[in-house]
Design a protein around this nucleic acid. Sequence first.
DNA 1: CATGAATGAGTTTTCATTCAT
DNA 2: TATGAATGAAAACTCATTCAT
Lengths: 197, 197, 197, 197
Amino acid sequence: MSKAEKTRQFIIEQTAELFNKKGYAGTSLSDITSATGLTKGSIYGNFENKDEVAKEVFLYNSKRLQQSVADKLNREMTCREKLFSIVDFYRTSWESNFLRGGCPLLNTAIEADDTMPFLKKEVAKSFENWAQKTINILENGKSQNEIVESIDSQKYAYQFIVLIEGGILLSKTMNNKAHLFNALERIEKIIDNELIK
Amino acid sequence: MSKAEKTRQFIIEQTAELFNKKGYAGTSLSDITSATGLTKGSIYGNFENKDEVAKEVFLYNSKRLQQSVADKLNREMTCREKLFSIVDFYRTSWESNFLRGGCPLLNTAIEADDTMPFLKKEVAKSFENWAQKTINILENGKSQNEIVESIDSQKYAYQFIVLIEGGILLSKTMNNKAHLFNALERIEKIIDNELIK
Amino acid sequence: MSKAEKTRQFIIEQTAELFNKKGYAGTSLSDITSATGLTKGSIYGNFENKDEVAKEVFLYNSKRLQQSVADKLNREMTCREKLFSIVDFYRTSWESNFLRGGCPLLNTAIEADDTMPFLKKEVAKSFENWAQKTINILENGKSQNEIVESIDSQKYAYQFIVLIEGGILLSKTMNNKAHLFNALERIEKIIDNELIK
Amino acid sequence: MSKAEKTRQFIIEQTAELFNKKGYAGTSLSDITSATGLTKGSIYGNFENKDEVAKEVFLYNSKRLQQSVADKLNREMTCREKLFSIVDFYRTSWESNFLRGGCPLLNTAIEADDTMPFLKKEVAKSFENWAQKTINILENGKSQNEIVESIDSQKYAYQFIVLIEGGILLSKTMNNKAHLFNALERIEKIIDNELIK
DNA sequence: CATGAATGAGTTTTCATTCAT
DNA sequence: TATGAATGAAAACTCATTCAT
């Protein structure tokens, strides 16, 4: 890892929470220099412009999340165990998630929607990726005879995202974890009632 | 209605979509003067500051939405008809909702969360209001012997919001109405399977 | 007194202290409307512009002061009694003078000096007027054989102003009435040692 | 001296006369950029805000004055020579003082009095400093057996300031140096009649 | 590579003033 | 006369970005 790459990574990590809390428009270059202790010239030496920082921070935040989920899974688990593990991740990580400003996919999706097309594209990719992970588990489950063959994996994968993101939104806004937890229970119910053979 | 009140209302209406699309921080006073044809002095003659415009625009957008839903309902409907009517509203209004920048509650909730406490409070109130409307329908349904008595109205009311907002989020981001429509179907399923006697 | 004249007077009186404290540049038309309860249109209906208000307020403040001094004097007094009466006025009025923002001549002289020629002229006239009053007393004293004939009345009259204004300046700035009181004692000493036969 | 410090100093020097003439409220950032040839961004890069510029300019003006007086004095002088030297400074510098907008202590004291507490504090300090210098000379004179032991040094020190500032005020306002010169003569008379043994 | 110092266009807000009603 | 509602210019300040060193 070159020095340049280290500095880039340092900037990204130091500002990840900032961007997630204040948004991309709301985070100024002065905020970035304050958070990193570096100068503006240095930021521009390592990134083309603020948009590039924003994009890399989003990718970092998104990957971090994805990795945390992946860390809970392993080869030996049944399909059901994997799905429940994912659901449980959102339950146990709620507190820290909350403190770091909520889900970066949700936050970025909303802010980027009508104003930052380059970011919106990345968010869409992240959601697709997330959905694909769930789809893979389900399809694997089908071939392992654990999941009902006839179900539309993609439909369920996205429905789980809907419930999780909607739950985070409401819990964050109302300052009440019950809404997210209810949504997670709903997902578990769906898994057991509609997916598991 | 005094001229001042008319101008206030004019400013609010002319900038409602703007704020919903570009966000509160992202909408500048110059944007507001462009959209209204008025001068900065005139904006400040009618509002204390930009925050007040933001707040009033949110309240306007929120009430507009609420009214549109309410317009679909009437006294003669059964509880089930009312609930399905609400769900259907989000189906039929999807296109226009989409073009106006998505759900103002969702957008404002995310933007205001860590940065604009005065707006966050209003969003929370709006969500509560919305939930209460659904709760009232359900409680009414119980006393009319149409809804299972033992169910927790509040829990279901918020779960519907979770599904609708999560659905809008995903559909808007992925540019694919299927995600919202799936979520709406899920709500209908829940109504018929768990709530209606 | 016509209604117009009454309103003019009302505006002047309500804003006299304001102008003396905040200065002419520092007092905005909004300050004036707040202090009077009138509208901007009404201010402009009664005065040509802010400068005219400023000028009239200065004249009002200046005359008020002059009148207060004059009220302490009467025909029967000796020259010495009159001079000591004037000096004593600044001693006894110190507190209220202080609370109203200090001497309007001093304040206006400084502010108007390099920026508001139309006001500077008025302040100079006021000082001349004040000096002339003292000169008259002294000249009268000469013809009454109470004051040394050879003294330069004008020189002493202005020296008294120097001591009074310098004293007010220092006492106000240091928040310590001793400086003014010392200056007043100096005047008394000069009267008895150099002027009175 | 870093470039930043040089620019700070440059800004202070280029605007010192401006502030003294137009006052702190009356000097706008545009005035500052015009006087320096720099941009607003550059001013804010070197000062926290306009208040900080104002304060530094006052301190500069105040120190400049103090230094000019100090330059006239040296170790070999008797106490009387020193006091007369100070008095004479105000006589010989009258013209340039006048052209630069008058005494910065006087100007700032009046403007800051009811509106800018952070500046008022600095002016008070400057007056104290000035008085202390005179007190030191007098106390030294006492121990050298040149000054009457029983006199209250502080009282006389402040009385000299009263006469000088009152004199400047009147001379500036009436556009007539005689008032200041009279006051200076009065000081000299006091020195010889009441202080010198 | 990073820094320090600058830029110019932008921000929100306030100003004195006007004028139809 | 007084009001309510506007205007346009100017205020203080911040922004993302650049570039010589």
